[in-house]
Write a protein that binds this DNA or RNA. Structure first.
Lengths: 245, 245
DNA sequence: TATTTTCATTTGTCTGACATTTAATGTTTG
DNA sequence: CAAACATTAAATGTCAGACAAATGAAAATA
């Protein structure tokens, strides 16, 4: 573990960086134990509280976990896809809402990325993923389903489609785009006719995926893209008319 | 600001969550000032250090910034694309290295996503972005360029391509895939013949983007995909042969 | 009025203490 | 001898109080 230059600014950040670097560089294996807080405070020549703040930062990024007790301490944590997912999704959602990304932009991004997955998904999808897609389609057809549940199911459907590509990197990057759009989708009121249309497009996609027909999946996705865009624009227009300001 | 349930576990995490929720929900505007640490410690009925740990977590996620002095305090921060980018890239890189994602998977994801961008980029690219692409191509042709610089330039080229889609959501999601692959790309030794081939493919892409020819851009990207994959597999094979372990 | 000084407020850091958790160690007991 | 129980040591978690440093605003002064 390296020492710290006697710089002025933000001690905890410097210490966190030093530790993070030594984790990233591979000096420390997964589940390796860091020196205790007291030891670290001696090494870096700062107080224990300062070290603790640094460790808290790393914990917030899921880089370490801490454990109490005799054999406890801070341990290097394997960054799991699950943790990274969760983080990625909240950040993406926040980014969209705080920067007021419009519906069109988010929609375009989402479907462009999904269409990138579709050919791979048509090639590799497991029966399991196909079954999930079918189940969600069935759920979407249920009468009396709330708009929110419909959106949830929509996300689940598309997630299964993306996971069908069997590429965790793709799934990870796409999760951000798909899930972050949900708040925007939730603004839409889906009429029965809207839902029928979406369900039929979903069915066409599932059929295409089932028969490994990449081009048909792409065509259906293209239609779904423009249809969703249309619905979104109507919803945004209605919203704008209601609250003119 | 809500109070905390008297649960046992991890006070700072609970407090951080409470504050984060009230930021995300939109109760607090950007640049709004949170109560001082002392006030928060009274509201939540914990010590100041506990509040500080919670605030540090939020700061690590770029949700707040702190300022010293009379009118200082913790302020809600607008999550900028730049901050989110940086975070996204380091997380993606870490995820790939810690979970030993193989070259093929990363490569497939990257180019699948890029091909999703290409049609949009062909439609919208600015002269500026095109100029960047040309400049990087020129740089890649320079004799005596190190492999690392060549990779850097490669990333810059593809970044310009992606940015050409003029969709910040796409740029954001793609940055993770493109940049995270760089460590893997850096393992490749590029011969002169390799570079010539790549430069010529880059030129074809730039030409297609310039003339708004989406299909030609896609074709060139497809070729680049398989060529990169080939190079990567050779490099991995060579590496495996060298260190059989 | 313009400049300087003072001051109150807030975060940053340090110190020391005690609480809590946990595994290892020691001790007792059947 | 072995199992159950008690003790202990080490580590993180939390608290309280102090002082340092920064910083803007108010007050004093030229």
């Amino acid at each position: 573990m390296k020492i710290d230059p006697k710089s002025k600014a933000d001690l905890p950040a410097q210490i966190a960086k030093a530790i993070r670097d030594s984790i990233i560089s591979g000096d420390m294996d997964v589940d390796a134990r860091l020196p205790s807080e007291t030891e670290l405070s001696e090494q870096f020549d700062v107080s224990r509280s300062t070290v603790r703040e640094a460790l808290k930062r790393l914990a917030a990024q899921n880089l370490i976990r801490t454990q109490r007790g005799a054999t406890g301490g801070a341990f290097v944590r394997r960054l799991s896809y699950q943790d990274a997912y969760a983080n990625h999704i909240t950040t993406s959602t926040l980014l969209l809402s705080m920067n007021a990304v419009d519906f069109e932009t988010a929609c375009e991004a989402r479907f462009a990325l999904e269409r990138a997955c579709a050919p791979l998904s048509a090639k590799r999808r497991t029966p399991d993923q196909l079954a999930t897609m079918r189940a969600e389609i069935h759920r979407q057809g249920q009468p009396g389903l709330s708009d929110e549940s419909f959106c949830d199911s929509d996300v689940a459907f598309h997630r299964a489609l993306v996971d069908g590509a069997e590429n965790p990197v793709l799934s990870y990057q796409l999760a951000g785009a798909v899930e972050a759009m949900q708040p925007l989708m939730n603004m839409i009121t889906f009429t029965q006719r809207n839902r029928d249309m979406i369900v039929s497009l979903h069915s066409r996609i599932a059929d295409a995926i089932e028969t490994h027909a990449a081009d048909q999946a792409d065509a259906a996705l293209a239609e779904l893209t423009s249809y969703t865009l249309e619905l979104g624009q109507q919803a945004m227009a209605a919203r704008a008319a209601k609250a003119p300001e």
